[in-house]
Design a protein around this nucleic acid. Structure first.
Lengths: 291, 291
DNA sequence: GCGTTTTTGTAATTTAATTACATTTATTGG
DNA sequence: CCAATAAATGTAATTAAATTACAAAAACGC
């Protein structure tokens, strides 16, 4: 476990002097790893053995070992954090922030993924006679993207951003069909309605949305994208990426479950794209590319 | 820079004894960080000062400092790597692999981003009387997504997946207009053609594509997505995510450059979406959501 | 308030790391 | 091939750092 978290957690159990040591270290852990036990003791106004005892209390072999673990905690600790873009940011700064926020969002989504729901979702998709994708606004393009991916298989796939078309399609869903509803907030009325209609047709409704949202309650299976609320400053960015990667996971599961036969067909579809593009100068044609 | 990589890189310049030290450390770096200088010296069959000198050669303050940096290198080391999905993977396994590969791709793209090109791109977009997005296949949905984002501003934006529409639009481009061409491979013939036409109209052609590709050569500004070739096993996944995040960076830059006035307008657009969704039970309405 | 336990500090000890210097080993010009 | 020189390595001494043992002080219960 992370040493810094541990220090925060055990703070209550520390003695007065130990708390002083912890405070100095936590104030600037990066600097602390370059201090000797004597310097640190002086900064905390305690004796050297107190610092040593403090290290032992945190299950380290001694001060040098403690510094080593602290250094590792710092290096590992929260690799990517969500950082807000500021008006004053340089191009390099806000670019980095956006990349890191996105990576942080993916990391969180990965950690909180409900494997059970994921398996159910892949099962349902694998056996579905028909699959349709719904979403509005930014989620519409996620739905569109999902359709593109599933088009490579021979299961009929539907997507439209037209409300009437959507309602018509979903009304005709049959048992076993999968209706995928995508929404970051899970509070888009039109989409909840679609999900509701789908439920009545006995189709399997799969939500890629916020847990415990109105939409989630309409769904049979929910894959939640637990992206922190404040991730998207001006518009949904990281949350949408998380949705897309979830779709990637779904289609990978679908492909794996379809077995080698289907994967051969997939390769054929890709090879059919060859003529539409320039050949590579330096390397053999790669049939896995597709744009 | 990573100490371990550094050791590998500088191996040739090391002296005989230094190489012995390096070998022992590299053989099991994790164990090395818990050894004293005496133990390490004995293992490498060299004297203690030789180990010390070795540390200094790697620009560390001494042996303890070296161990600290080594520990950090180990903790940090390749946080996310591209790992292939195998037929035998469990759901948890391939899900993790996809998430990590995507994060790895983003990490690489972030590192290799050409800040100069990025600034030029944002400048061009900020001043463009008209912006259009082009892409085929998987990149079409990226282009579509880009259009969605830019629609929130009052600059005219165009996107279509119809080849004729695209050609018509691009033919009418004026100087200052920005034509954004998106392709993972950069070898899609139709897109290169579009880019070529755009160039003749004196519009600024911005490519989000592979460096040194046929498409890249047609562009005025290139933002390259340096995703390893083998990232996308069955279909473009990580590369497309990288493109999307690049779009996010572009629009953020665009928004920042537009100043506070435009950002107010953006908020108004978002607030206009309120009625279309359910209110939050537990928290105030968040005007930044939009799907 | 007194005995007990816990906490903290002082001083001594041990261990580790570094420096200064000597020796060996390679390198080059004649 | 052999000095002369430079580079590399090791030995021993020095210094710095960390730990231990023990004593003093503070906190706690009765």
């Amino acid at each position: 476990m992370n040493l810094i978290d541990k220090m925060h957690r055990d703070m209550a159990q520390f003695s007065k002097s130990e708390r002083k040591v912890a405070a100095v270290i936590l104030h600037d852990p990066k600097a602390a790893i370059h201090k000797s036990i004597a310097v640190l003791a002086k900064l905390a106004n305690v004796s050297e053995p107190t610092v040593n005892r403090f290290c032992r209390r945190l299950d380290t072999k001694g001060y040098p070992d403690f510094k080593l673990l602290l250094a590792q905690s710092l290096a590992k600790g929260t690799p990517f954090v969500n950082r807000h873009v500021e008006q004053s940011d340089s191009t390099a700064e806000f670019a980095s922030k956006i990349f890191e926020s996105t990576m942080a969002a993916l990391n969180i989504t990965r950690k909180h993924i409900d494997l059970n729901a994921l398996e159910q979702a892949i099962d349902a998709l694998s056996q579905a006679p028909k699959i349709s994708f719904f979403g509005f606004g930014a989620s519409a393009s996620v739905a569109h993207d999902a359709q593109n991916k599933f088009l490579r298989f021979d299961t009929p796939v539907f997507f439209s951003d037209d409300l009437l078309m959507q309602r018509m399609t979903v009304t005709n869903a049959r048992k076993g069909d999968v209706v995928v509803c995508i929404s970051h907030t899970g509070r888009t009325k039109a989409l909840c309605e679609i999900a509701g209609i789908a439920r009545q047709t006995q189709a399997t409704v799969l939500g890629i949305t916020a847990a415990d949202s109105p939409l989630a309650r309409e769904c049979n299976i929910v894959l939640s994208t637990q992206v922190p609320e404040d991730t998207d400053v001006y518009m949904p960015m990281a949350s949408r990426i998380a949705q897309l990667v979830l779709i990637d996971v779904l289609i990978t599961g679908y492909t794996l479950r379809s077995g080698p036969d289907f994967r051969d067909r997939l390769r054929l579809v890709k090879e059919s794209l060859r003529d539409s593009r320039f050949s590579r100068e330096d390397a053999p044609q790669n049939p896995t590319d597709s744009d």
